[in-house]
């Protein structure tokens, strides 16, 4: 199958593989601990594990955009902040 029209690059392939692995990880987590672990965190409304992943990924996208817009193209610090943010979301939200 020719996928050249999708214009794949190594960084974008790695990016999507990471997302895919995260989703598989969530599915495995759900298999061993069903129910999504709903709880009410600091946002004062109920979130499940899936909600927390969504908030983490969406937040990470905005952190990267903010870094690009305000600081510059070196995104390693934005990635580090995103990981800390995601840990915070999974811990407190």
């Amino acid at each position: 199958m020719d996928l050249s029209w999708m214009a794949w690059t190594v960084p974008t392939a790695l990016f999507f593989m990471t997302i895919f692995l995260l989703l598989i990880g969530m599915a495995v987590w759900e298999y061993f601990s069903p129910g999504g672990n709903p709880r009410i965190g600091i946002l004062r409304f109920e979130t499940t594990r899936g909600d927390r992943l969504f908030v983490s990924l969406l937040g990470a996208a905005y952190i990267h955009l903010a870094w690009l817009g305000l600081v510059g193209p070196n995104l390693w610090w934005a990635l580090a902040i995103s990981v800390v943010y995601a840990v915070g979301v999974f811990r407190f939200v």
Binding site: S4, M6, A7, W8, T9, T12, P73
Partner: peptide, 25 residues
């Protein structure tokens, strides 16, 4: 996914792509 791939590259005719990184963003 294709749009994400396009967003980090510069496109010329005849399906030629060149890496542009975060330049367009």
């Amino acid at each position: 996914m294709t749009v994400v791939n396009y967003s980090v590259q510069d496109t010329f005719g005849n399906n030629q792509f060149f890496w542009a990184g975060t330049e367009w963003y």
